[in-house]
Design a protein around this nucleic acid. Structure first.
Length: 635
DNA sequence: ATAGGGTTAG
């Protein structure tokens, strides 16, 4: 496989892709790629794999049909090479149908070297040959050569057709190559091609996965025939673009129109559900899956683990995990991640050791999930140990995400100097995330000087994320440096960035309510504020001191308190207490980081009211139970 | 003969 990568690089260095032009190319290839070693007749008997093949397979004549059927019975690359070798002498490979089949079978067995060589040697190529070659390259991940082959197809005067287009467009999707995708779309239009629904569905998939959901929607609306696959693509596209609500609308509509979702469609909607984070939808989907008796395979099971975890129920995620007969590294990582985001670091570590015992090799994502679990649970030593062992023991080299987890872990623990040293000494390229992690830690520990240093480097990266500016602005506000706050706001205006308002959602009886800071649009707004008022008295007598530092500066204390009690997450919790008097748990979701003050607030509310409170910000869950918190984000 | 949709982090 490594050789192939080199091969692709080698060709990209050529001014033109000489690979495709006659004999010079063959010479260039044979220098770098070994010719496939076709077994000789005399060695065949000693080859156990081939020995198992019925003898009739080896004795075919010049009949192409017999050749093709023989080819499709081949179970491995040795058998294919043997058949290839046999027919080479008969000249049957000059038959296009035969050659294309051979090409196809090599590609399907992921033998790209043989596919290249055969394609190069073919004297004549038809649209099928091109499609098989392009598709083979796309499916095996050699995108560069895939695009070059497609370009060569056009340069040779052929036209892309409804068969070659889906493959090359899929390659655009997989490489997030929007520009390439658009130009291929244009080329196809220029050629006056009448797109069939295969091309349309890959195109809309490509646009959706590249984040241009509007273009995807336009294509979708124009399609005369919308089948299950097309709809599934659109559902997945909406989820990918952060509009999982739209995914649901489409899913419901599809079922109303009589489509029965298959396994892939179910996985897609499960994924949309995970992004939605709505518990009632998760149960609904689960019931549907049970009713239709879909088997719990690796992919569906893993998607469900993730769904339950992101909908707040780590126990249900574990139930699914235990019921799965087959698990791969993705399933294990998803479950480790589930414990991690719920602050159950010990469980995540235990699971990691179970995973190792069952012979599964951890990958980069496994370690991100593990380190994240350590940081969310405050397991500093365990995190440090894992980080130092990951590359030595498990062959996983730390990337910027791993460093970010470590900065977060050390930073939250107040070991900011070590965090800074780690960043300064890291061997991979630094990104916004890693500085942002340090900045976040500075906020918790009120280290303004270090925050300025981190922010300077972060803002130098011209970050477009308004959240980063807000974070720094809050640090300044906390230190009472109002002039600096104003400077940051000014910088935001100059960079044309808008402050993102923080919202909190709460789900009550399957209905989702949204609150903004100081929101009074809710019909029961009056009750909510009254509840907060009575809560505040109880909380303060229980020792709660509202942290008014970050609230404006030129207003009097009473107004400050008003603003503080009007935080969106507090409004949502107050509403939860009113709307579910019998309930035991209140679950809320915030689109921005929950502040330290709110953390303290939740802890006390859960102690006073004897109710569990589950707060989710981004993908981090905080469980408050009888005044204790499962995670240690704000120690 | 050749073509489309699914799982883990950030």
């Amino acid at each position: 496989m490594l050789k192939l990568k080199n091969q692709a690089t080698l060709f990209s260095n050529h001014e033109k892709l000489r690979f495709f032009s006659a004999s010079t190319a063959s010479a260039a290839i044979s220098d770098t790629i070994p010719q496939p070693q076709f077994p000789q007749q005399s060695t065949l008997d000693s080859n156990a794999q081939i020995k198992n093949m019925p003898s009739t397979h080896l004795s075919f004549s010049l009949d192409p049909d017999l050749f093709i059927s023989t080819l499709f019975k081949c179970k491995n690359i040795f058998q294919i090479q043997q058949v290839h070798c046999q027919v080479n002498t008969t000249g049957i490979t000059s038959d296009l149908v035969v050659a294309n089949k051979l090409l196809y079978i090599y590609a399907r067995h992921k033998d790209l070297v043989s596919t290249y060589l055969l394609f190069d040697k073919m004297e004549e190529r038809d649209p099928v040959s091109w499609t098989v070659m392009i598709d083979g390259l796309a499916k095996n991940g050699d995108y560069k050569l895939c695009f070059e082959t497609f370009r060569e197809l056009i340069r040779c005067g052929s036209k892309p057709d409804n068969y070659s287009l889906p493959s090359v467009i899929r390659a655009c999707r997989d490489t997030m190559g929007l520009i390439m995708g658009r130009s291929i779309h244009c080329v196809a239009l220029k050629n006056g091609l009448d797109f069939d629904h295969f091309v349309c569905s890959t195109l809309l998939d490509m646009y959706a996965k590249c984040g241009i959901i509007d273009n995807a929607k336009q294509l979708f609306d124009k399609m005369p025939k919308k089948d299950l696959v097309t709809r599934t693509v659109m559902i997945g596209g909406y989820a990918e673009c952060g509009k999982p609500n739209e995914s649901w609308v489409l899913f419901d509509q599809m079922r109303k129109e009589g489509f029965v979702p298959d396994k892939v469609a179910m996985v897609t909607i499960v994924n949309a559900c995970a992004r939605l984070g709505a518990t009632n939808k998760a149960r609904l989907v689960h019931d549907y899956i049970c009713a239709k008796r879909y088997s719990l395979d690796v992919v569906l099971g893993t998607a469900m683990i993730d769904m339950y975890a992101k909908c707040g129920s780590v126990d249900s995620a574990r139930e699914i995990f235990d019921r799965m007969e087959q698990k791969n590294v993705i399933s294990w990582s998803a479950m480790i991640g589930a414990y991690g985001c719920h602050g159950q670091g010990r469980e995540a570590l235990d699971l990691f050791h179970m995973m190792l015992s069952s012979g599964i090799r951890p990958n980069q994502i496994t370690f991100v999930s593990l380190l994240y679990a350590c940081s969310h649970a405050g397991l500093v030593d365990e995190g440090l140990q894992l980080f130092s062992l990951m590359s030595v023991n498990y062959g996983v080299r730390p990337n910027v995400k791993h460093y970010t987890c470590m900065v977060d872990l050390l930073g939250r623990a107040g070991r900011l100097d070590e965090a800074l040293r780690l960043i300064e000494n890291m061997k991979v390229e630094k990104d916004e995330g890693v500085w942002c992690a340090l900045l976040g830690a500075c906020r918790i520990h009120k280290k303004v000087d270090l925050a300025e240093k981190a922010a300077k480097l972060l803002l130098a990266l011209q970050t477009q994320n308004p959240g980063h500016y807000i974070l720094l602005s809050n640090i300044y506000a906390n230190a009472g440096r109002w002039k600096d706050v104003a400077k940051i706001r000014d910088l935001m205006t100059r960079r044309r960035l808008k402050k993102v308002p923080g919202y909190t959602w709460i789900e009550v009886d399957s209905i989702i309510y949204q609150f903004g800071a100081g929101d009074s649009s809710h019909p029961r707004s009056k009750e909510i504020y009254e509840m907060l008022k009575s809560l505040s008295q109880k909380l303060e007598s229980a020792g709660y001191v509202p942290d008014t530092n970050s609230v404006l500066h030129d207003v009097d204390e009473e107004v400050k308190l008003g603003i503080l009690y009007a935080h969106s997450e507090k409004l949502a919790i107050a509403f939860g207490l009113i709307a579910t008097p019998e309930g035991t748990a209140i679950g809320i979701t915030k689109n921005l980081r929950v502040c330290g003050d709110c953390h303290t607030f939740c802890k006390l509310v859960s102690a006073i009211t004897h109710r569990d409170i589950i707060v989710r910000d981004a993908n981090r869950f905080h469980h408050f139970k009888e005044g204790t918190c499962s995670c240690r984000d704000y120690w």
